[in-house]
Every structure is written in C-alpha cells, then in structure tokens.
Amino acid sequence: MKKSTTFTNLVQMILKEEDVTRILEELNYVDTARKFTGHQLLLFFMNAALEQWDSFRSGVGQAASCGLAPVCFSTFSSKAGAVPYECFKRLFHVLVSRCNRSTKRHLKLPQELLLVDSTTITVGKTRLPWALYHGERAGIKLHVAFDAASEQPVQVEETLGTAHDGPIGERLAHKGYILVQDRAYGKIKRFDQYVHEKQYFVTRIKENVTMVSPHALKRIATETSNVSRDLTCYLGTPQCQSELRHRVVIFADTNGNEIRVATNLMHLSAEQIADAYKARWGIEVFFRWIKQNLNVPVLFGTTKNAVFNQLFAALMTYVILKWLYVRAKACVISCMSIPFIRFKEQMKHHRLQPEWIVAMARVMDKFIYLSSS
C-alpha cells in the first residue's frame, strides 16, 4: 500500500464499489459516468473531510496526493448534486454495521447509553434558499444517536434547521439502550409513552415543569454525592400532566447549577442516574470534533444532495478513523500510544509511526478475514 494512498485504500476495502452500485440501483439512479462514478464521489468527499478541503475547486487540486483520479471541479460539483444523498445515508449505516462492535462499558449500567441530540450547520440564506432558518441565515440539522461506550454514531437523521428535535428523537430511540437526552426532548407525554414501550430513558426536564405529589425515595446519602433529591411524582400541570408517576433525580453539575432529570430506571442509584446524564457530554464533544476536524461547517454545494452527501461522507470518515484508532491502539504498546486527534493528523499528513501502520494492517487483515468468512 503506497504511503500517499493509505486512507483511500482503507475506504475502498471497507466500502466497496459494488456497495455503492447496489444502493444506487435500489434508488433507481442510473450512473452513466465511466470515470467519475458514485464510488469516486464517495472517495472524494471522504478525503475532503480528512484533508479539510475548502471547496470543490480546491479539492480537485489535491486529489492526486490522495490517490484519487484527476477530475475537473465542475464534474465533482455536478456529480455531488446529482447523486441522491439517500445513497450516502444508507452507506453510512452499512459502515456502522460493519465497523461498530461493543466495547468495554465505562459505566456500571445494565445497558449501554444512547446519547441523542442534534447539531445545526448554518450559512447565509442565499446559499441554501431551500433551508431558511432564522433571519438572514439558512441551516440544516443532523440528529444523531450516539453510542457512549464506543463513541460512535449509530443512527443519523437529517432535517432542515427549523425542525423540532423531539419527534426526531422518538425515531432515534432504541430499546437495547438507555436513552440520554437534553431538555429539547423532555415532553411529558413522551415519558409516559416510553414507560409503556419499556424504553429506558434519562431526560432532563425544563425548569418550569411542575412536580406534583412528590414522594421522596429512600437513599443512603454520601459526602461526595452531588444528588440533592431523589423522588417520584407526576409531572406537569392539570392541563398537561403525566398519567404515570416518574422518578426525578435532582443534582448539581460541576458549576453548581441544579439539574433535574426524569427517568424510569428504578433499580439504579440516584448517583448512577446523575452519572448517566453527565455522559451526555460525549455527544457534544463529538459534534465539536467533527466541526473542527472534518470540515463539516464548510458546505461545498448548494443543493440538498450536495450538502447531505458531503455531511454523510464526513460522518463516515469519522466512523472509519475512530474504528481504526480504537482497534489499532489495542495492538500498540502504551509508550507509542497517541491521542485520537494526533492519529487523525498523522493519517492526514501520512506520518503515522511504523508501529501504528503495522497495527492498522492487522486490523484490516482481521476485518477482511471476518468479512469473507
């Protein structure tokens, strides 16, 4: 494997051309191009995320250094707008199913935590007239379900920036996980619904939500605990009140601010409930990381297909980088360990140490073996 084509080759081994062709055929998209196919578009966009290209035009000038075939920027732009973004969305979920595996649990909980939140990317309204947001801005949202243990997104929904988070959050729910959500998802009727559906959740409630008929739960308080109250109650006013009693844990964050979370986890301690909600910071770190390191805020195109193709390609780039990093790190001696951000930068500039290159080769050999068996 040539040093200059490492990332491109890795992508091609994990997401093959036949994967792209099959999905495009299912979407009834006829790819008539002989050279710049849908698979080539995928490789261009994923390298654009890793290399942090500025635009279609600047990217084609750097394509050769990434092991990509030369192409003019207008071809790149036209293809990005023509290929239905549902293709890249499906590819993202194919990639997740291939790469994600359960990892060691960081919290002693019976199920993994699924962090649900959204991030908004905004630009001037003239760039995306189909996605008007507020005033002179246009924007789109990525709604993400994020596995706290593996630090990987497992499901993503795309909407306009004006879409409400709550209904999308219901679509991202998964009974195999404990949902951890912020106030935007704290609809009282939804809490009752989750109980009926046997969906575990830990959701922050808004400051103006009334707690009716509170009943304190027995607990053994410790000096180090930041939990101030642990109780069950009905939530809301008579006009809009929960049908069921819900557990509410009240605790202080690191800045001393009071946090109230509702949950149906009755078998865990209040401190465990508080720790589960604190883990929600993991998805905020993820959003910040992809925006700072994968060029997410720099939208190349102006059509819906071009925009979401770029964003789903960036998410796939993250999944591959994180997957490779975690598994290769396990094969590298501790003194050669490096942070994830440095791994990404060394991958970008082709400066990975030999120990890491060997470890990555082992990871890929195992992946290919398991894929073929």
Rank of each mutant, 00 (worst) to 15 (best):
R288N: 01
V212G: 04
L235V: 05
M360H: 00
N257S: 07
K79Y: 07
F201P: 00
I341A: 01
V209H: 08
V144S: 03
E284C: 06
R260S: 14
K35F: 06
H164L: 06
G301K: 11
E243N: 07
Q193Y: 08
W289E: 00
T222D: 10
W130H: 15
K3N: 15
A33I: 05
E17M: 04
S242R: 07
L10V: 11
H215D: 06
T224K: 13
P110S: 04
L42C: 05
T103D: 11
F343C: 06
A82K: 14
R247P: 09
N293D: 01
L352V: 02
V326E: 12
Y185D: 12
L268H: 12
V358H: 06
D31H: 03
L95N: 12
S97V: 05
E271M: 11
L24V: 08
L50I: 12
E345L: 10
R245P: 00
I168V: 15
T263H: 04
A173F: 05
Q353H: 02
E258G: 04
V227M: 05
W289S: 02
C335G: 03
Q40Y: 03
I333D: 14
D19F: 10
C87W: 01
A173R: 13
G67W: 01
T103M: 13
L294M: 15
E151M: 12
